[in-house]
Structure formats: C-alpha cells, structure tokens
Simulated assay, not measured.
Amino acid sequence: MEFNAEMDNQNLFLYIVPVFALLGYFGSQFVFKNILSKIRKDAKLDEKLNTYQTASIIKYALIEGPAFLAIVAYNSSGNALPLVIGICLILYLAVQRPNREKIIESLPLTLEEKRKLEHH
C-alpha cells in the first residue's frame, strides 16, 4: 500500500471522513452537554456520577466511530488525509479522559458533594 496525500475525486472516503469527523466532534460535545444539563442538583451523587459516565461513554463512541471510519478509509485508499484525521480524533479522545477536576466542574454538585469527591 502506498502513502499519498493527493486528492482523488473518485474516492468518496476523502469527502465522507471529514464530514463524519466534524459531526462526531460537534455531536459528541452537544450530546454530552445536553445529557449533563438534565441532571438535577437535588439528585443523589451516585445518580449524577452514573449520568456523567453514560454521557461520557456516548461522547467517546461519537468520537471513536469517525476515527475507526478514518482508519478503514486509509487502509482502503492509502491516502494520508483519513489517517491524519483518525489520529487527530484518537488524540482528542485521549484528552477527554475524565478526572476528578473535570467531573467536579461539569456536574451540578452541592458543596458537600464537592468536598466528598475532593477527598476521595
């Protein structure tokens, strides 16, 4: 398989991959924020954390799908553009890894819940 960066008008992957990458990126942000916005402040901490976990899994899937498509597109065409897009999506996915600070910042937590999470 050769490695090239030429635009081939016959290769639909060169049009589909960037569109799906953008949809995955923006869609993941939208869905994640939308799910988190529905969390009630008076909900139990476990419920808030479970909802955060669900929202995160959906967000990751919306990023992984286009990344996987990009790698398949690269394997079938040998064109570097899908590979670069796929690598960028995978790197972005790695940055999305949850940590305590992100969770505390993202969830509508009470002061007591924040203290509880900070001390674990």
Rank of each mutant, 00 (worst) to 15 (best):
H119L: 13
Y92H: 10
K48N: 05
L91E: 09
P98C: 09
G27T: 12
P66N: 07
I39F: 01
I57S: 06
I16T: 08
L45I: 10
A55M: 06
V95N: 02
S28F: 09
H119D: 13
H120M: 11
K116W: 12
I16V: 14
F13C: 14
L36R: 03
I87L: 09
V31D: 05
S28G: 14
I71L: 09
S37W: 00
P82T: 10
T51R: 00
E105L: 03
I104D: 01
N4R: 12
A43G: 10
A70P: 03
Q96S: 07
V31I: 15
F20A: 08
R97Y: 09
I35K: 01
I16G: 10
S37N: 12
R115K: 15
Y60R: 02
V72H: 04
A5G: 08
Y15R: 10
V72D: 02
E105A: 09
T54N: 12
I104L: 03
I85N: 04
K59D: 05
E112P: 05
A70V: 03
F3K: 08
L107A: 00
I104H: 02
E2C: 05
M7S: 12
N11S: 13
E112D: 14
I103V: 04
Y74L: 05
L49Y: 02
Q96K: 01
L49K: 09
E64Q: 12
F32G: 00
S28V: 11
G78D: 10
E6Y: 15
I16N: 04
V84Y: 13
P82Q: 09
V84G: 07
P18M: 04
V17A: 00
K38A: 06
D8I: 15
A80I: 15
I85W: 10
L117R: 11
T110S: 13
E6L: 15
A5L: 11
L117W: 09
A43L: 10
A21P: 02
I63K: 02
G65K: 04
I35A: 01
L69E: 05
L22M: 15
L22Y: 14
G27S: 14
G86K: 08
K114V: 14
P108N: 08
Y92D: 09
R115W: 15
I90W: 06
A5M: 11
P18Q: 06
E6C: 11
G65R: 01
S28A: 13
I39R: 01
L89F: 08
T110F: 03
R97C: 01
I63F: 03
D46W: 14
Y60T: 01
E2F: 14
